[in-house]
Design a binder for these strands. Sequence first.
DNA 1: CGGCATCCCCAAGGATACTG
DNA 2: CAGTATCCTTGGGGATGCCG
Lengths: 116, 116
Amino acid sequence: MVVARRPGSYECGIDAAMDVIGGKWKVLILWALDERARRFGELRRLLPGVTEKVLASHLRELEADGIVHREVFDEVPPRVEYSLTPLGASLNGALEPLGAWGREHVLGAEVRAPRR
Amino acid sequence: MVVARRPGSYECGIDAAMDVIGGKWKVLILWALDERARRFGELRRLLPGVTEKVLASHLRELEADGIVHREVFDEVPPRVEYSLTPLGASLNGALEPLGAWGREHVLGAEVRAPRR
DNA sequence: CGGCATCCCCAAGGATACTG
DNA sequence: CAGTATCCTTGGGGATGCCG
């Protein structure tokens, strides 16, 4: 996103959080990882439209922020798994009310969607 | 903002909400309006760094999304007040856990170990 | 006071190709 | 499979000026 990446201080906790989840696909990544760990290609398939470059950079940012854990398995073919850290899980929990709000007030308004 | 402005459907409620609050200053606007109604110039002073153009466009988007109410008082000098609609208030409530998360895990971490 | 109208910039994000 | 490496596009947002 934008806001103000690491300017040293924020007005309130919400911008700080918005900074962490501000990427275009980040909340979707968190959502996809909520259930279980996922491989890179798996995530790519779960997020139709994301490019490899953007997915990789988002994952690296989330890793730097301590939200996701990246584990490399030394195998052939290579395998890398991404999972939520405890911090990431807590973020997802904090996101839940917002998701419920969106489902109820935005999605509900335009469609009676059977989400995920 | 980013994500996908009104593409007709979202993956989950969170993107839908992210779409609404995706502007650089929107959550700060919501925060400022949470306490009471505010005038345009008042908001400008509360958000150091925002330009008139951006503040006005954000307010209009929030108004279009049914989040804020704009009331014009036909006086001289002109007076315009912005306030949260019930929907806006509920959004603010849904944002609260996220704000708490940010305060606890981002702001707190920065204070203890300032980076950059 | 509370705005639009303009012009402009730049970083987030997309497309494509290549590699360990 | 899981990424880099490059190049390019886009539009959100900043700066400035004018107006009812």
